[in-house]
Amino acid sequence: MNIHTYEKLWLVAAMVLIVGFIATITYGSVGLGITMVGDQQDTVEPTELDDERFSDPRVAQVGENEYEAYVTAQMFSFQPDPIEVPEDSEVTFYVTSRDVIHSFSLVGTNVNTMVIPGEVAEMTVEFDEPDEYGVVCNEYCGPNHHNMEGMVYVVPEDEFDLTELDAEAPGEVETGDDIDVTATVENRLLDPIETTVTLEIGNETVSEDVTIDGGETDETTFTVDSAQLGEGDHEWTVTVDDHTDSWTVTVADELEDDDADDDADEESNENTDAGDDADDGENGTEDETDTDETESDASGGDGE
């Protein structure tokens, strides 16, 4: 075969390019530790997703600065959304789909994976500085694909917590009875936290300092005299750091029927459910924070 010298030269140059490319990529893998999304995770049932990771999509702390984020993608949202992690942390994302193929891609970064039903994508990422990243689905997933987005917030360490707040109180009491407002505060961090549980009801504010060990749950009960509040609807709000939970208690002269107690229970249960229901696709576990403050003020005014 008759190959011109120049072409032989080019053949060598081409091989140098090819080998050089492969070498660069290998350096990225071996030298820099850049890891591909792979087959590290077992498969899951996309319709069930009943393992403890995806039945409650959330961020969990697993070590000193190590966190795991369990994320589900579905038409046309991500859960949880937003995802909040602290600065200087190593976060491993576990992402799966409930329906079709999506992607989970942090805009302006190299965090990018396909999300395939049945498979779990695992990606470990280091977040250094506080920042915020948009999340897009970059695989076509249906007619509203372009509306599928989310956020990842990397927050300063002192602003970060994994506190779950759930407050309960009867929906209706007879004037003169005590109103017990019970705040259940779970600290999902590994370290203890010191914080304050505050109840606002009517124009009263009461608070209590608590220390909660890592992984523990604290119950704080405030007792309010309904007579002081007077007859009518009273909005109450429990606050722990930036988490709030609120509901309304009705003080009546005489309870209308015997079922009133049951109704009250149901109402407070509903309240709890709204917080825990991970499937509502809106705000996931952070639901409690959605409180309309002006409304609460207005009802406080009512109490006067």
Partner: peptide, 30 residues
């Protein structure tokens, strides 16, 4: 090609932090 390859890999790609790393090699990578 050589110039653009280096530019794309070492400036555009590695400058586009954060990147997916394996847990044990994080220190090395940083």
């Amino acid at each position: 090609l050589v110039f653009l390859w280096f530019f794309m890999y070492f400036v555009e790609f590695l400058g586009n932090d954060p990147t997916v790393v394996s847990g044990t090699l994080v220190f090395l990578a940083t």
